[in-house]
Design a protein around this nucleic acid. Structure first.
Length: 938
RNA sequence: GGGCCCUUAGCUCAGUUGGUUAGAGCACUGCGUUUACACCGCAGGUGUCAUCGGUUCGAGUCCGGUAGGGCCCA
């Protein structure tokens, strides 16, 4: 027996089965022939493949998928590509550990290279043990590993049921992406938005690369104030008549040789007389001025601070605004330079400096404190403090500031006009929830400079420029050589500059290639341009850009969202998308953000396998956009129960209506039976109400609806369902998927617990247990009404649940409906209203349900089976509900197994003249209750 | 220090433009193998709506203060 509908329904195993079918049928394939109006385009975040996916990803990607499925059912052709962000530092680090190698760009390429390790155990391999390899070999390993990672990611996403068109994946490192990134860069360069500058730069000494403001984070770190004495110079002694030392406090004594001034607040009376005069630095004896600046805080330390080039970002501001000299002491490796800076001239100064050179900042600090103590220019012991220190978000050593030549892209950080334009873009964007727009606004207002896009790394998109070398072999930075757009992508390290040959590389009069690559965000800020075909598919681009939706996490508003707006504004003078849907965090049971470092992460695949994908999706869907959600496996169990219930309730409906009988013969027979049972309300051929095959067999009510659905209770259910459809549609359209789910879910449980129980007997129409029902055979009008209602309701519920529970709904759909539920039309209330007419009262379902519960309570309290018959019972009902209860009386008697049911007006029952009045003192006439119940012997 | 969000039952959360007695699920207790489902069903108890004040005929909801939590930015 190969029954279409299984005897025992289960949600287990649905994922693989349906994913295969969807792939084979191209269910989610994007049809590029559709018009712009029909298309809904989504700019999905490309996950970093070198990281691992965690529960938070499952959470937020489900939010997106739910919208995609809704829009698809609403008739939109959904453009929903998935990308992989394999570009950048995370991949490099993973490759180093996985293969035990590191990149050394000076080495030659080795063909047939095999790495020393494969499949590292995840532990770091010490830098010293990593085999140095050529840049090209290194990049090949990056590509090899990301290809493997991508497959695992895709498998997880498929298992979760993302309705992505898997034929349209992209990688941020792929040649097409590189070409887009380079083209956008070149255009910005021509418009003057991209430029290079020699400037103080935040620098990660571990990764030896510059980092951007957006990648910073403050971390509280222990530090210590060291109190140092500066001797007054002659002009100060003269002005003040005092030989007293000036005491400053610093957390960076090792930068003393880089000191260029002392600074105090202009209003600080203590130091006002010193402004413009000079002091000499301890040990090094360099004469530096005392200057005034509003950023000096009088209540910090002694109120006067030393300015170094550079200890922190405030130093940079002081240096720039006060026009101070440069006295760099720190190298790109985080060690004190070999050569003393300008200004250190005396033999003692040079000798002192030589003791520090080559040391790390940590060792240099220890050494200089000893030297200061020996010279007796330090006061007491260092005073320990906790203070915020700037870190690269992926780094673990404090950032240093070094001066270097870097590429920048304008982002409003230095230009009020651009900043205001970008603020306006933020206002035009529909953030969901809207308050997330504040984060954007705060960030833009807090920008302190342009976007630094150069990275001194290897696996990324090369900055597409070369520089000429003059006759002496010096680089002419000011005239970069730029490729033509149709040459892209280029790799200046491997490709010769236009107009040159490779043998002119690095020779006087020749050229040299830019070695730096771009910040990962400089590529991912162009995901709309990459996926929409800005460079190479104008037709697709016209139909998909600007995109409809950017879903993402709140943590990357300042990076991904903002930088994408910047690029789109610069290149296209418009927003890249209309809506930005922001998902919240997943919190662990202690209300802490879940993250790998805290060791509280559950593997997503394990979760999906334990609970089922629909169940996990249900949990994710239960959280509104922008709201943090608890990681709650209880909620997943509820989701699983719901999915299971969908299967079982469907089994009942199809069984009681006889559709199962037909469907088990063939799908076509099931479809025909469905059409017959609903009198064509659900069918594939005609939409007319009444007059169909079923209409002939069961004359429809002559009340204008021409519908088989004649019973007030049945009409009430469908009227309520029509309301739910309207509310859910409205909510979904406003990106409130949670409300849409909750609406459908609530009515569905009422449907299962009350409505189905009430109409069960009527729908069976006297069929014996286990007896197969012939859906085409004549039946009573009451049965026909119930059967039509059950099927119409079920079919509507399936479509309402399809975005949330794609597997269970598709499974049921396949039992009796043609095609896929995921391309079925999103339900509308119109057809439901047509079936039930204008006068249907949705509240009847609730009233009947309450009456049923009141009857059940008798048996629950008597501790007997619900199956026990009630020989007789009086049901006391609030006056306003008497009519409704009477309308459902027959169903109530059947469901409650009542032989004699007296429906009594609860108020009238209180009247002693009507009914003894013996219970008047406790009666609450607003609540249903029973009296005189007589249970049959069980 | 600035900005934003949150605080409702033991837990997770709804509660729309202010309107009767503030809801759901989970958990808990008791009962029950019903011609869909024991991954089930039925029935049952659960509140200082963080706190103080204001507006109002009426406040969980609006306004202000305070406390606590979270996030972003300095």
């Amino acid at each position: 027996m190969t029954a279409r509908i299984p005897d025992k329904a289960t949600v287990d195993g649905l994922e693989d089965r349906w994913n295969e079918t969807w792939e084979a049928d191209g269910t989610y394939r994007f049809d590029a022939s559709k018009s712009r109006d029909e298309i809904y385009s989504i700019d999905t975040p490309p996950p970093t493949v070198s990281g691992s996916l965690h529960v938070g990803h499952v959470f937020s990607y489900t939010h997106t998928d739910v919208v995609a499925r809704f829009k698809r059912m609403c008739g939109r052709e959904v453009f929903y590509p998935m990308g992989w962000d394999d570009n950048g530092l995370p991949t490099e680090r993973r490759v180093q550990n996985y293969f035990g190698v590191r990149c050394d760009p000076t080495l030659p390429y080795e063909a047939e290279f095999e790495p020393p390790h494969v499949g590292g155990d995840g532990k770091s391999i010490k830098a010293a043990d990593q085999k140095p390899i050529a840049r090209r070999n290194f990049i090949e390993l990056c590509e090899r590993l990301t290809a493997e990672d991508e497959q695992q990611f895709e498998a997880l996403w498929r298992h979760l049921g993302l309705s992505v068109d898997w034929s349209r994946t992209y990688q941020t490192i792929a040649p097409t992406s590189q070409a887009v990134a380079q083209q956008a860069f070149i255009r910005s360069l021509k418009r003057g938005e991209a430029y290079q500058a020699e400037a103080p730069t935040l620098w990660d000494v571990t990764f030896r690369t510059a980092v951007a403001q957006a990648e910073l984070e403050d971390r509280e770190r222990p530090g210590a104030y060291h109190r140092l004495a500066f001797e007054p110079a002659a002009d100060m002694e003269e002005a003040t008549g005092s030989y007293d030392s000036i005491w400053i406090e610093t957390t960076r004594p090792e930068l003393l040789p880089a000191c260029v001034a002392l600074v105090a607040h202009p209003d600080d009376e203590r130091y006002k007389p010193l402004f413009g005069k000079h002091v000499r630095t301890p040990i090094f004896g360099v004469e530096v001025p005392v200057v005034a600046h509003r950023l000096a805080s009088p209540d910090k330390g002694s109120g006067i601070a030393m300015i170094c080039t550079f200890g922190d970002v405030t130093d940079v501001i002081w240096w720039r605004e006060l026009d101070l000299p440069m006295r760099s002491v720190l190298g790109h490796d985080g060690r004190i330079l070999a050569d003393a800076p300008a200004g250190l001239e005396s033999e003692e100064a040079l000798a002192a400096f030589s003791e520090l050179s080559g040391l790390t900042v940590f060792s240099a600090q220890k050494r200089i404190v000893e030297m200061l103590q020996e010279a007796d220019v330090i006061d007491g012991e260092p005073r320990s403090i906790q203070h915020p220190v700037k870190f690269f978000e992926k780094g673990d050593k404090p950032l240093e500031i070094v001066t270097s030549r870097q590429w920048y892209i304008a982002n409003g950080g230095r230009d009020a006009t651009l900043r205001n334009a970008l603020l306006e873009r933020g206002e035009q964007l529909d953030f969901i929830p809207s308050h997330m727009g504040k984060r954007y606004e705060n960030w833009v207002n807090g920008l302190t400079g342009d976007w630094l896009i150069s990275r001194q790394r290897f696996f990324g998109v090369p900055i597409p420029v070369w520089y000429p070398l003059d006759a002496e072999g010096e680089i002419v930075w000011d005239s970069p050589i730029v490729p033509a757009e149709d040459q892209l992508p280029v790799d200046p390290s491997a490709d010769a500059a236009p107009g040159y040959t490779e043998d002119q590389r690095n020779v006087p009069g020749g050229f040299t290639g830019e070695k730096d690559i771009m910040d990962t965000w400089a590529t991912s800020s162009l995901t709309p341009q990459i996926v929409c075909g800005w460079r190479d598919d104008p037709e697709l681009y016209a139909k998909t850009f600007p995109m409809d939706l950017r879903p993402q996490g709140q943590d990357i508003i300042r990076t991904w969202l903002f930088s994408t707006v910047v690029r789109s504004h610069l290149e296209h003078h418009q927003l890249p998308w209309k809506h930005a849907a922001i998902s919240g965090w997943i919190l662990d049971p202690d209300r802490k953000k879940m993250s790998k470092s805290k060791g509280n992460v559950v593997t997503p695949m394990g979760l999906l396998e334990t609970h089922g994908s629909d169940a996990v999706r249900y949990w994710a869907s239960s959280a509104r956009l922008g709201t943090d959600a608890a990681f709650d496996e209880g909620q997943m169990k509820i989701g699983r129960r719901l999915a299971n219930k969908v299967l079982n309730a469907s089994k009942f409906v199809l069984g009681a209506t006889g559709i199962a009988t037909a469907a088990n013969e063939s799908l076509a027979a099931g479809v025909a039976a469905t059409s017959h049972v609903t009198s064509g309300v659900i069918n594939g051929t005609h939409t007319g109400l009444g007059g169909g095959a079923a209409g002939d067999a069961h004359p429809a009510a002559l009340d204008g609806t021409g519908s088989l659905v004649t019973e007030p209770l049945d009409r009430a259910l469908l009227a309520g369902l029509a309301d739910v459809v309207d509310t859910a549609t409205k909510a979904f359209t406003a990106y409130d998927h949670t409300r849409a789910l909750e609406q459908a879910e609530t009515l569905f449980w009422t449907f299962c617990d009350d409505y189905v129980e009430l109409v069960k007997a009527r729908a069976y129409d006297g069929a014996a247990p286990g007896e197969e029902i012939d859906p085409l055979a004549p039946c009573s009008a009451g049965a026909a009404s119930a059967r039509a209602t059950l099927v119409i309701a079920l079919e509507t519920f399936l479509r309402l649940f399809a975005p949330f529970l794609p597997f269970a709904t598709e499974e049921v759909w396949s039992w009796f409906r043609p095609g896929t539920v995921h391309r079925a039309e999103w339900p509308t209330s119109g057809p439901l209203h047509a079936v039930v007419g204008d006068r249907a009262d949705a509240s009847l379902v609730g009233t009947a349900g309450e009456a049923l519960a009141t009857l059940r309570k008798i048996k629950s309290e008597a501790k007997v089976s619900q199956r026990t018959e009630l020989v007789s019972v009086d049901l006391l009902v609030p006056e306003a509900q008497v009519e409704a209860v009477n309308a459902a009386k027959a169903d109530l008697m059947a469901a409650g197994r009542v032989r004699a049911l007296q429906v009594v007006d609860a108020v009238a029952a209180l009247d002693p003249s009507v009914d003894g009045g013996d219970s008047a003192e406790i009666a609450d006439t607003t609540v249903m209750r029973t009296e005189n119940a007589v249970l049959a012997d069980s």
